[in-house]
Simulated assay, not measured.
Amino acid sequence: MSLLILVVDDEPDVEILFRQQFRRDLRDNRFAMEFANSAASALQRISDAAGASLILILSDINMPGMTGLELLPKAKALRPDVPVIMITAYGDDQTKRKALEGGAEALLTKPVDFVALRNVIDTRVTGAA
Rank of each mutant, 00 (worst) to 15 (best):
3 L>A: 08
4 L>W: 12
6 L>W: 11
7 V>M: 08
7 V>K: 01
7 V>F: 00
8 V>H: 00
10 D>F: 02
13 D>T: 06
13 D>N: 07
14 V>Y: 05
14 V>D: 11
16 I>E: 15
17 L>D: 15
17 L>T: 15
27 R>M: 12
28 D>N: 09
30 R>C: 13
30 R>D: 11
30 R>Q: 11
30 R>T: 15
32 A>E: 06
32 A>S: 13
34 E>G: 14
34 E>Y: 02
34 E>N: 12
35 F>W: 06
35 F>G: 12
38 S>P: 13
39 A>Y: 01
39 A>R: 00
40 A>T: 05
40 A>I: 11
40 A>R: 10
41 S>E: 12
41 S>R: 01
42 A>G: 03
42 A>V: 07
43 L>G: 02
45 R>S: 13
45 R>E: 12
46 I>E: 14
48 D>P: 10
48 D>V: 05
50 A>T: 05
50 A>S: 14
50 A>Y: 11
51 G>M: 03
52 A>P: 00
53 S>V: 10
54 L>T: 12
54 L>H: 06
54 L>Y: 03
54 L>S: 08
55 I>K: 13
56 L>T: 04
56 L>H: 03
56 L>F: 02
57 I>P: 03
58 L>E: 12
58 L>W: 04
62 N>E: 10
62 N>S: 09
64 P>H: 04
65 G>Q: 03
66 M>T: 13
66 M>D: 02
67 T>K: 02
67 T>V: 04
68 G>C: 13
68 G>S: 13
70 E>F: 00
70 E>I: 06
70 E>V: 10
73 P>D: 15
76 K>P: 00
76 K>D: 14
77 A>K: 12
77 A>E: 15
77 A>N: 11
77 A>V: 06
78 L>G: 10
81 D>V: 02
82 V>Y: 12
82 V>A: 14
84 V>L: 07
86 M>H: 08
91 G>E: 03
94 Q>P: 00
95 T>F: 02
96 K>A: 12
97 R>W: 03
98 K>F: 01
100 L>M: 15
103 G>P: 02
107 L>G: 11
108 L>C: 04
109 T>P: 10
110 K>F: 00
112 V>E: 04
113 D>P: 14
114 F>T: 14
114 F>M: 13
117 L>R: 00
119 N>C: 10
120 V>F: 03
121 I>N: 01
122 D>V: 11
123 T>E: 13
